Simulated assay, not measured.
Amino acid sequence: MHSNDSSATFRITFAGIQAAPNVAEAIEVLRTNYGIDFITYHLCQTVADVVDTPFVRTTYPDSWVSRYLMRDYVKIDPIFHEGLIRQMPFDWREIEIPEAAYEFCADAGRHGLGNNGFSIPVITKSRRALLSLNSSKGDREWSNIVSERRSEWVELAFLIHEKAVFELHGDHDPVPLLGAREVECLHWSALGKDTKDIAAVLGLSSHTVRSYIKSARFKLGSATTSAATARAAHLRLIHPYSTTGS
Protein backbone atom coordinates (compact mmCIF):
# COMPACT_ATOMS: atom_id res chain seq x y z
CA MET A 1 0.00 0.00 0.00
CA HIS A 2 1.15 3.53 -0.60
CA SER A 3 1.77 5.96 2.22
CA ASN A 4 -1.22 8.10 1.24
CA ASP A 5 -3.47 5.07 1.51
CA SER A 6 -1.85 4.21 4.83
CA SER A 7 -2.56 7.66 6.20
CA ALA A 8 -6.14 7.53 4.97
CA THR A 9 -6.72 4.13 6.57
CA PHE A 10 -5.29 5.36 9.84
CA ARG A 11 -7.37 8.56 9.87
CA ILE A 12 -10.57 6.71 9.06
CA THR A 13 -9.87 4.07 11.69
CA PHE A 14 -8.92 6.63 14.35
CA ALA A 15 -12.19 8.48 13.78
CA GLY A 16 -14.15 5.22 13.75
CA ILE A 17 -12.67 4.08 17.05
CA GLN A 18 -13.39 7.44 18.64
CA ALA A 19 -17.01 7.26 17.44
CA ALA A 20 -17.53 3.63 18.47
CA PRO A 21 -19.88 3.31 21.48
CA ASN A 22 -17.78 0.59 23.12
CA VAL A 23 -14.56 -1.41 22.85
CA ALA A 24 -16.22 -4.35 21.09
CA GLU A 25 -17.23 -2.13 18.19
CA ALA A 26 -13.91 -0.26 18.29
CA ILE A 27 -11.86 -3.41 17.70
CA GLU A 28 -14.26 -4.41 14.93
CA VAL A 29 -13.53 -1.07 13.22
CA LEU A 30 -9.81 -1.80 13.48
CA ARG A 31 -10.25 -5.36 12.22
CA THR A 32 -12.34 -4.35 9.22
CA ASN A 33 -10.31 -1.35 8.09
CA TYR A 34 -6.97 -3.15 8.21
CA GLY A 35 -8.19 -6.52 6.97
CA ILE A 36 -7.13 -8.39 10.11
CA ASP A 37 -8.65 -11.80 10.78
CA PHE A 38 -9.12 -11.50 14.54
CA ILE A 39 -8.39 -8.94 17.26
CA THR A 40 -8.41 -9.25 21.05
CA TYR A 41 -8.10 -6.54 23.68
CA HIS A 42 -7.35 -7.75 27.20
CA LEU A 43 -7.14 -5.36 30.13
CA CYS A 44 -5.10 -7.49 32.48
CA GLN A 45 -5.61 -5.33 35.52
CA THR A 46 -8.29 -2.88 36.50
CA VAL A 47 -9.05 -1.40 39.87
CA ALA A 48 -12.56 -1.49 41.22
CA ASP A 49 -12.68 -1.18 44.98
CA VAL A 50 -10.74 -4.21 46.26
CA VAL A 51 -11.45 -6.57 43.35
CA ASP A 52 -9.48 -6.96 40.14
CA THR A 53 -11.95 -7.22 37.28
CA PRO A 54 -11.07 -8.91 33.98
CA PHE A 55 -12.03 -7.02 30.85
CA VAL A 56 -11.70 -8.84 27.52
CA ARG A 57 -13.16 -8.06 24.12
CA THR A 58 -12.45 -10.21 21.08
CA THR A 59 -13.57 -10.94 17.52
CA TYR A 60 -12.59 -14.61 17.79
CA PRO A 61 -15.41 -17.09 17.00
CA ASP A 62 -17.65 -17.96 19.93
CA SER A 63 -16.70 -21.63 19.52
CA TRP A 64 -13.02 -20.83 20.14
CA VAL A 65 -13.76 -18.47 23.03
CA SER A 66 -15.86 -21.17 24.71
CA ARG A 67 -13.17 -23.79 24.20
CA TYR A 68 -10.47 -21.42 25.46
CA LEU A 69 -12.42 -20.83 28.66
CA MET A 70 -13.52 -24.45 29.10
CA ARG A 71 -9.97 -25.78 28.79
CA ASP A 72 -8.52 -22.91 30.85
CA TYR A 73 -6.08 -22.15 28.05
CA VAL A 74 -5.16 -18.84 29.66
CA LYS A 75 -2.74 -20.80 31.86
CA ILE A 76 -0.64 -21.94 28.88
CA ASP A 77 -1.35 -19.30 26.22
CA PRO A 78 2.22 -18.24 25.31
CA ILE A 79 1.19 -14.97 23.65
CA PHE A 80 -0.83 -13.81 26.63
CA HIS A 81 1.93 -14.66 29.09
CA GLU A 82 4.56 -12.98 26.94
CA GLY A 83 2.34 -9.91 26.76
CA LEU A 84 2.29 -9.71 30.56
CA ILE A 85 6.04 -9.21 30.76
CA ARG A 86 6.96 -7.44 27.51
CA GLN A 87 7.26 -3.68 27.33
CA MET A 88 7.40 -3.33 23.54
CA PRO A 89 5.20 -4.62 20.68
CA PHE A 90 6.20 -8.05 19.40
CA ASP A 91 5.63 -10.35 16.45
CA TRP A 92 4.38 -13.75 17.51
CA ARG A 93 7.22 -15.41 15.58
CA GLU A 94 9.63 -13.98 18.15
CA ILE A 95 8.13 -16.18 20.85
CA GLU A 96 9.56 -19.57 21.68
CA ILE A 97 6.56 -21.82 22.15
CA PRO A 98 6.94 -24.15 25.16
CA GLU A 99 6.16 -27.81 24.60
CA ALA A 100 3.18 -27.58 26.96
CA ALA A 101 1.53 -25.15 24.52
CA TYR A 102 1.95 -27.23 21.33
CA GLU A 103 -1.52 -28.76 21.53
CA PHE A 104 -3.02 -25.36 22.37
CA CYS A 105 -1.52 -23.90 19.17
CA ALA A 106 -2.71 -26.86 17.11
CA ASP A 107 -6.19 -26.55 18.57
CA ALA A 108 -6.24 -22.82 17.74
CA GLY A 109 -5.40 -23.66 14.14
CA ARG A 110 -8.23 -26.18 13.97
CA HIS A 111 -10.61 -23.41 15.05
CA GLY A 112 -9.57 -21.09 12.24
CA LEU A 113 -6.92 -18.96 13.94
CA GLY A 114 -3.94 -17.91 11.85
CA ASN A 115 -0.31 -18.72 12.59
CA ASN A 116 0.82 -15.10 12.52
CA GLY A 117 0.13 -12.26 14.89
CA PHE A 118 1.30 -9.03 16.44
CA SER A 119 0.72 -7.96 20.04
CA ILE A 120 0.99 -4.51 21.60
CA PRO A 121 1.44 -4.16 25.37
CA VAL A 122 -0.26 -1.01 26.64
CA ILE A 123 1.10 0.20 29.97
CA THR A 124 -0.47 3.27 31.57
CA LYS A 125 -0.66 4.30 35.21
CA SER A 126 -1.12 1.05 37.18
CA ARG A 127 -2.71 -0.80 34.28
CA ARG A 128 -1.37 -3.27 31.77
CA ALA A 129 -3.36 -4.22 28.69
CA LEU A 130 -2.63 -6.23 25.56
CA LEU A 131 -4.00 -5.71 22.06
CA SER A 132 -3.37 -8.72 19.80
CA LEU A 133 -3.92 -9.00 16.07
CA ASN A 134 -4.13 -12.46 14.49
CA SER A 135 -3.71 -13.25 10.79
CA SER A 136 -3.67 -16.26 8.46
CA LYS A 137 -1.51 -14.41 5.93
CA GLY A 138 1.83 -15.90 4.95
CA ASP A 139 5.05 -14.96 6.70
CA ARG A 140 6.41 -12.59 4.05
CA GLU A 141 3.13 -10.76 3.50
CA TRP A 142 2.54 -10.45 7.24
CA SER A 143 6.05 -9.10 7.80
CA ASN A 144 5.46 -6.41 5.20
CA ILE A 145 2.12 -5.45 6.75
CA VAL A 146 3.56 -5.25 10.27
CA SER A 147 6.51 -3.20 9.07
CA GLU A 148 4.19 -0.70 7.40
CA ARG A 149 1.44 -0.53 10.00
CA ARG A 150 3.01 -1.11 13.41
CA SER A 151 3.30 2.56 14.40
CA GLU A 152 -0.33 3.15 13.44
CA TRP A 153 -1.47 0.07 15.36
CA VAL A 154 0.42 1.16 18.47
CA GLU A 155 -1.31 4.54 18.47
CA LEU A 156 -4.69 2.93 17.88
CA ALA A 157 -4.05 0.43 20.69
CA PHE A 158 -3.67 3.28 23.17
CA LEU A 159 -6.85 4.88 21.82
CA ILE A 160 -8.76 1.62 22.35
CA HIS A 161 -7.28 1.36 25.84
CA GLU A 162 -8.57 4.84 26.72
CA LYS A 163 -12.01 3.77 25.52
CA ALA A 164 -11.84 0.63 27.69
CA VAL A 165 -10.98 2.60 30.82
CA PHE A 166 -13.82 5.02 30.09
CA GLU A 167 -16.22 2.13 29.44
CA LEU A 168 -15.34 0.72 32.85
CA HIS A 169 -15.18 3.89 34.92
CA GLY A 170 -16.56 6.83 32.95
CA ASP A 171 -15.24 10.13 34.25
CA HIS A 172 -14.56 8.61 37.68
CA ASP A 173 -11.35 6.68 37.10
CA PRO A 174 -10.33 5.33 40.53
CA VAL A 175 -6.63 5.31 39.64
CA PRO A 176 -5.03 8.72 40.26
CA LEU A 177 -2.43 9.98 37.84
CA LEU A 178 0.81 10.33 39.78
CA GLY A 179 3.98 11.80 38.35
CA ALA A 180 7.10 9.63 38.03
CA ARG A 181 8.85 11.40 40.93
CA GLU A 182 5.77 11.09 43.15
CA VAL A 183 5.73 7.34 42.47
CA GLU A 184 9.46 7.04 43.20
CA CYS A 185 9.18 8.93 46.48
CA LEU A 186 6.27 6.75 47.62
CA HIS A 187 8.10 3.61 46.55
CA TRP A 188 11.17 4.39 48.68
CA SER A 189 8.98 5.60 51.53
CA ALA A 190 7.19 2.23 51.49
CA LEU A 191 10.60 0.57 51.81
CA GLY A 192 11.20 2.47 55.04
CA LYS A 193 13.36 5.30 53.75
CA ASP A 194 12.96 8.71 55.37
CA THR A 195 12.98 12.03 53.51
CA LYS A 196 16.75 12.46 53.79
CA ASP A 197 17.42 8.93 52.50
CA ILE A 198 15.03 9.35 49.57
CA ALA A 199 16.65 12.66 48.67
CA ALA A 200 20.06 10.97 48.56
CA VAL A 201 18.79 8.05 46.45
CA LEU A 202 17.03 10.27 43.91
CA GLY A 203 19.52 13.13 43.90
CA LEU A 204 16.94 15.65 45.09
CA SER A 205 16.71 18.05 48.00
CA SER A 206 14.77 17.02 51.10
CA HIS A 207 12.40 19.91 50.48
CA THR A 208 11.64 18.64 46.97
CA VAL A 209 11.03 15.10 48.24
CA ARG A 210 8.60 16.41 50.88
CA SER A 211 6.77 18.35 48.16
CA TYR A 212 6.40 15.25 45.98
CA ILE A 213 5.13 13.18 48.88
CA LYS A 214 2.68 15.88 49.92
CA SER A 215 1.37 16.12 46.35
CA ALA A 216 1.01 12.32 46.14
CA ARG A 217 -0.88 12.25 49.46
CA PHE A 218 -3.29 14.86 48.14
CA LYS A 219 -3.93 12.95 44.89
CA LEU A 220 -4.45 9.72 46.80
CA GLY A 221 -6.75 11.35 49.35
CA SER A 222 -4.52 10.27 52.24
CA ALA A 223 -3.78 12.22 55.40
CA THR A 224 -0.47 10.50 56.13
CA THR A 225 2.43 9.16 54.11
CA SER A 226 1.88 5.63 55.43
CA ALA A 227 -1.75 5.76 54.29
CA ALA A 228 -0.65 7.07 50.89
CA THR A 229 1.89 4.28 50.39
CA ALA A 230 -0.69 1.69 51.44
CA ARG A 231 -3.21 3.02 48.94
CA ALA A 232 -0.58 3.29 46.20
CA ALA A 233 0.40 -0.33 46.80
CA HIS A 234 -3.26 -1.41 46.69
CA LEU A 235 -3.69 0.37 43.37
CA ARG A 236 -0.40 -1.18 42.20
CA LEU A 237 1.11 2.19 41.51
CA ILE A 238 4.10 1.00 43.54
CA HIS A 239 5.51 -2.42 44.38
CA PRO A 240 6.81 -2.05 47.93
CA TYR A 241 8.51 -5.45 48.03
CA SER A 242 10.78 -4.64 45.11
CA THR A 243 14.07 -2.85 45.63
CA THR A 244 14.61 -2.24 41.92
CA GLY A 245 12.24 0.70 41.69
CA SER A 246 8.53 0.86 40.92
Rank of each mutant, 00 (worst) to 15 (best):
M1I: 12
H2F: 15
N4W: 12
S7G: 07
S7R: 07
F10A: 06
T13I: 11
N22Q: 06
V23R: 00
E25M: 10
V29H: 02
R31F: 10
T32D: 08
N33H: 15
G35I: 13
Y41D: 02
L43G: 00
D49N: 05
V51W: 12
T59K: 00
L69S: 06
M70R: 15
R71F: 14
Y73T: 04
V74T: 08
K75Y: 15
I76M: 09
I79P: 01
E82A: 13
G83P: 01
L84K: 11
D91R: 02
E94C: 08
E96C: 09
P98A: 13
E99V: 14
A100Y: 12
A106S: 09
G109A: 15
N115K: 13
R128P: 03
K137F: 07
E141T: 09
W142F: 12
N144Y: 11
E148M: 10
S151T: 14
E152W: 12
E155A: 15
I160Y: 07
E162W: 10
A164G: 05
F166G: 01
E167R: 05
L168G: 01
P174I: 15
P176E: 07
L177P: 00
V183N: 03
L186I: 08
H187F: 12
G192I: 13
K193F: 15
D194S: 12
T208Q: 01
R210V: 10
Y212H: 05
I213Y: 02
S215W: 09
A216H: 02
L220S: 00
G221E: 02
S222P: 00
A223I: 12
A223L: 13
S226K: 11
S226T: 07
A227I: 09
A228D: 05
A230Q: 02
A230R: 02
R231D: 05
L235M: 12
H239Q: 10
S242C: 11
S242H: 09
S246W: 10
